[in-house]
Design a protein around this nucleic acid. Sequence first.
DNA 1: ATAGGGTTAG
Length: 793
Amino acid sequence: MLWRSPSHLSSVATSLRPRQRSCYLDLTFAAATLRHLDQILAHAILSGHHPDLVTTTKLLHRLADLGSPPSHLLRLFSSVPRPDLFLLNVLLRSLPPPSALPLLSSLPRTHAHLRPDSFTYAFAASASAALPSPTPGRALHARVIIDGFAADPFVGSALTDFYLNFSQVSAAEKVFDGVPDPDTVLWNTLISGLVQNCAFLRSLRVFKQMVTTGARFDSTTLAVVLPAAAELQELILGMMVHCLGVKSGLAFHSHIVTGLISMYSKCSEISAAKFLLEQIDEPDLIACNALISGYSSNGLVGSSVDLFRELLAFLGRPNSSTMVGLIPVFSPFGHECLARSIHGFAVKSGLDQNSPVSTAFTTVYCRLNDMEAARKVFDAMPEKSMASWNAMISGYAQNGLTDMAISLFREMQDLHVRPNQITVTSTLSACAQLGALTLGKWVHRIISQEDLELNVYVLTALIDMYAKCGSVMEARRIFDGMVEKNVVSWNAMILGYGLHGQGREALKLFKEMLNACIAPTGVTFLSVLYACSHGGLVEEGRAAFQSMTCDHGIKPGPEHYACMVDLLGRAGQLKEALAFIETVPENAGPGVWGALLGACMKHKETGLAQMASEKLFELEPQNISYYVLLSNVYSANRDYPEAAMVRQGAKSRKLVKTPGCTLIEIRDEVHIFTSGDRSHPQSVLIYSMLDKLTGKMVEAGYRAETDVALYDVEEEEKEHMVKVHSEKLAIAFGLISTEPGSEIRIIKNLRVCLDCHTATKFISRITQRLIIVRDATRFHHFKDGACSCGDFW
DNA sequence: ATAGGGTTAG
């Protein structure tokens, strides 16, 4: 029976014989709008047809489908004299999450005869997963345990899902462990939730456990586990899943095929991915998107565009995921024009309004170092997603625009946009580059305040930040507290020791790492070599280099070669360094020569310096630092005319030297000093402090290192030979602005010069202060007249 | 109650 209007309804309804409730039911399903349904209900009640339980239940369903407000649903429920559990459960499932839980907790008062069953708790748990706070869900969990439903797989699934929605992985696993006989859905819920929380290793472990215990898996299981294998680039495991799918006859399930295409793509097995798509009779949009993305991320942007054209021809409109996959985010280099024209297409088709699409473009522009374009896309987004904030912040951090990264993070704070793990990881990276310990600690506090789960990324970023901001101890404390470390965590800690000249500690940790069966990467060896180089451990460094290629099969890159040259050269083995360079492949770039030139500077080797710099001027004619280094080699040998010639050469090429500056933080305020700076408000005090210090230093035997007094003095400033370097000013300022006995931390943008290094040693003894200097390449801890670098930097 | 593709991190 159909009805078209309220008046029609009236005529229909009045014609009904009493007790014809089924007609009312039919009417309810024919009702197209909420208003109509309300009218039917009103009519039914007015004409004495109080709906019975079954009718009420169906009405409730229909009302909920039509978007009836929760108050209506609750009123209908309370109009029933003796509701049964089924009606309650339907109501629970129909109510919006915030209204569902209060209903359940008031149940003992309102309907004492109703004893919740597993459905009730499952529905309530899934409602609590959608709430902004986890507190009601935790209370519900407690009740589930008290009422003895913790072993029920249905309830367990909903609770597991609840905890995973709040990133409480361990709590979810606890719920799972409380169910003795998990069913397929419960296994799937746990695996899927772990994947969504980026706990890929854990998800794979659970999957293996599931298969080995003989639990039944289904298509969902395989579809859920494939992204984890893909993310971890576990090709063999992915292929095992594929085999499992073939054996169980699930391999042709469309979700699984798509997952396989994506998995093979992410493991760089692009031909397998292509084959799988070709096997599908009528591939759908999602499967095509998977391969388009696979092509792009493997640098096959041409194939990606071809498939995109096919998609346009056969399936018509792409969706936002097509665009995201098409954008060559992973390898935008060489595809800059294409990336920009894809952007044009997205704008034309309105797909750029989608937040993942804009985020992807933001990322591409960041990778192309076009930060203005990136920011434009970011600013144009009407609703900024978490990922878009993160993309912009990490883009700034990776392009060295650390202050922009930090100020954007501040902006988020001001707008009360809550950061997630990725946000703080990127921001910490900016703090680390900047060496800004105070800022880094501030971010650390925010992490605690926001109660962000300390995953491997966050903890590793903290290690990196503390190490690069001068607190190796704090870095080590965090490192030791980590339950699940990965290679990157080990690398960060090893590099941290290297930066502070603690070569032995670095090697010790490296051995521990090997004992823990963590496979080292190229970065590991770079960190080890760096640590050896800065710790004067030549033989250990040689051995590590040997082991890298022979035992671990890692091909050395230009940075490894440069580090080896640095290791040998720094230790005075210049001939060996040159001989080593001859074994290096032709295209290893300027790094090796740069390292050699640096070593010549330290050991005053003019001849070799000339040879190295000729190479360097050829390879990188625009890089001023090589001119500075060469000029300094001559100065160190008191060949001032030659030194001047070199600087003149740089000047005639219109190259400008980076001015040296030093930063010091005093009570959350940053002070920056340049050479000979008198702009500071406390300038007079600073200089008189410096004079007083110099007097005591001379008394103690300090003599200015005139050789390198010319280190970064410009031509026209020659007469100011005694000009004060920025680090001395910063230290003097630190001394007058802090408590006696407290440590002083300063950051210099260039390498610390010999004279300042010597002077700082004296100052540390005279004032009995620990002075920690971060220069362009490493840390120096000055204490009681000695430096941690052992004069080896 | 779980379900395929796409964006952000050390």
